[in-house]
Design a protein around this nucleic acid. Structure first.
Lengths: 134, 134
DNA sequence: GTGCTTGCAAATCGTTTGCAATAGC
DNA sequence: GCTATTGCAAACGATTTGCAAGCAC
């Protein structure tokens, strides 16, 4: 009924109870959670879970391309299980982080002669919802 | 011979010995330094300078638009005295951060109905120099 | 002399590390 | 059994905060 273990294996990551639960959480909750948020959400379902494991696992996911590191929040690292290239918008009022289907790689200046391996596109402002309910 | 004090005043920042020295450093050294790097560079010229002042001042600059916060380095906050909209590329090999004349605001999807106030465009990879001397 | 600025020391807090206990083949 | 994984406690390190002393107009 759930193929998260297969997904992890596909990224070269050995599935474990903890790893599956964390990846499942990322995939079901597209809220770009912090490590702490993941930990708090899963500790009920896995009482022995430690924050260290959450940190290590999220790092492992990012290193293997199974998750994306979202550096839009200066205070905490955030994570995204949706790994297709896209941009992030963070509302300065409500803090919500929204995915934007946008990719900046195409807009590199011609004179740039390096190799781009990763692109991070962050935008900040006021989201449509906060504008409406201001 | 130097109008840094006028520049700061223009941003609504009262000039002081420390503030002028820090802004001058940012403008002369386009290396996107960390607060610590600024501190180390200036402590000789201002022996009483404290790291707290450097942190507070850089924060003040960013809040008033006199400098840009560069979040491309997950370990440290970096700062840029060049405030025109532009992107940053960080070489994974040598760590150098390069300015790129690029602005992502034009590439927003039409269905996005929020107000974008700030744009951060970060790229990582291998710079032309490291490619050449690999 | 009043208010802003500085700087020291201590606190904060997200994240990492060392290492022993545990689980999975 | 051997290796990888987990989790506790401690360490770490960048940044912030409290507050007293100093400076400027």
């Amino acid at each position: 009924m759930d193929n998260t273990n297969i997904l992890l294996s596909g990224y070269g990551i050995r599935p474990s109870v903890q790893r599956i639960a964390i990846m499942r959480y990322l995939l079901k909750n597209r809220t770009h959670p912090t490590a702490d948020e993941v930990f708090e959400a899963l500790r009920e379902q896995i009482p022995t879970l430690s924050k260290t494991t959450v940190y290590n696992t999220l790092k492992l996911f990012v290193e293997n391309g199974a998750a994306i590191y979202v550096g839009i929040d200066e205070k905490n690292a955030r994570f995204d299980g949706y790994v297709e290239p896209h941009a992030h918008f963070r509302c300065k009022k409500c803090g919500t982080i929204i995915d934007l289907s946008m990719n900046g790689e195409n807009y590199l200046p011609k004179e740039f002669n390096g190799d781009v391996e990763e692109t991070f596109f962050y935008l900040k402002g006021i989201c449509g919802n906060c504008k409406k309910n201001h």
